[in-house]
């Protein structure tokens, strides 16, 4: 726990149980049990090829787990019958290669998903209301209709307003109407983070967010992430930035050969490593 920060770490928001993942004959993850708690920042470190990115991508089922369960808000999203899309709305993701939509302007990049989700929910509510109205004709105790508060236009306007607000926050509001190809790497990554934030996610997953950046642009992205951490956003970060992990994370997971070999607070892991593989890894990177 950092000094001066008044964050509260709450209930587990993602619970991973017995997670394994195999590609053909290759075992990438071999049984991971882990809880990500609300409001905490977890940094995942480990040598390359250890499965840390795969683990992160399993958390929102970008990779389908081979076995095991991932419980997000009480629902096992690893189950194939669950509609994964409605849950992914609440799990933001930031990629190593930014992956901004090249054919959309910056502002549309940010508003695309909120507008899509808003319109879809509106459509669903209207359909449900229509069905309920018909069913109510035959019911004795009538069911109430879902209140519809926003029109499509309001959804769009609200999403744009929120996007501009977020852009103002990172100081890129004048870039709202340009295409991503005109931006620097650091700007792209900050907009990718903002794109994730626009959905008001419960947790954000970062997949090596600074690895593809020029050294001088790493700082601006880490600053934004630090600010988010101080606001109490739940974050899971795969990173090679040991300095950032030590300073901003509440907990460090060391993954090697598809298993969590050691975990603890930054002080425990960095200053007093017990696992010999971790000692070797740290001696190389620090």
């Amino acid at each position: 726990m950092k000094e001066g920060s008044n964050k509260k770490i709450g209930e587990p928001i993602i619970s991973v149980r017995g997670l394994t993942k195999t590609y053909g004959k290759l075992d990438v993850l071999r049984g991971i049990d882990e809880d990500i708690r609300e409001g905490e920042q977890v940094a995942i470190i480990g040598p390359s090829g250890s499965g840390k990115s795969t683990f992160l991508r399993c958390l929102n089922c970008m990779e389908d787990p081979t076995s095991g369960s991932i419980i997000f808000e009480g629902v096992d999203i690893a189950d194939r019958r669950v509609n994964i899309n409605t849950h992914r709305e609440h799990i933001g993701m930031v990629f190593q290669q930014f992956n901004l939509f090249n054919n959309k302007k910056v502002i549309d990049n940010i508003t695309l998903a909120p507008i899509y989700v808003g319109k879809r929910n509106l459509r669903r509510a209207k359909l449900k209301n229509a069905l309920r109205t018909i069913a109510n004709l035959f019911r004795k105790n009538k069911k109430e209709l879902i209140p519809i508060t926003k029109t499509k236009k309001e959804i769009v306007l609200e999403a744009r307003e929120r996007a501009m607000e977020l852009l103002r926050r990172i100081g890129l509001e004048e870039k709202a109407t340009v295409y991503p190809s005109t931006l620097s790497g650091g700007q792209k990554q900050r907009i990718a983070i903002v794109r994730a934030l626009a959905m008001n996610p419960k947790v954000i997953l970062f997949d090596e967010p600074t690895s593809a950046l020029d050294p001088e642009m790493v700082g601006e992205v880490l600053d934004l992430m630090r600010a988010l951490a101080n606001e109490g956003m739940t974050m899971v970060i795969v990173t090679h930035e040991m300095g950032f992990a030590r300073e901003a994370a509440d907990r460090i997971l060391f993954i090697d050969e598809g298993q969590i070999k050691e975990q603890g607070t930054p002080a425990e892991v960095f200053d007093n490593p017990k696992n010999p593989r971790l000692q070797e890894f740290l001696s190389k990177v620090l």
Binding site: N85, F95, F101, N102, A113
Partner: peptide
Amino acid sequence: VDPGQLEAARAVGMPYST
């Protein structure tokens, strides 16, 4: 097209077709 584009779209909760 870079597969990351599809990945990013899926990650914000849009279905495959959209």
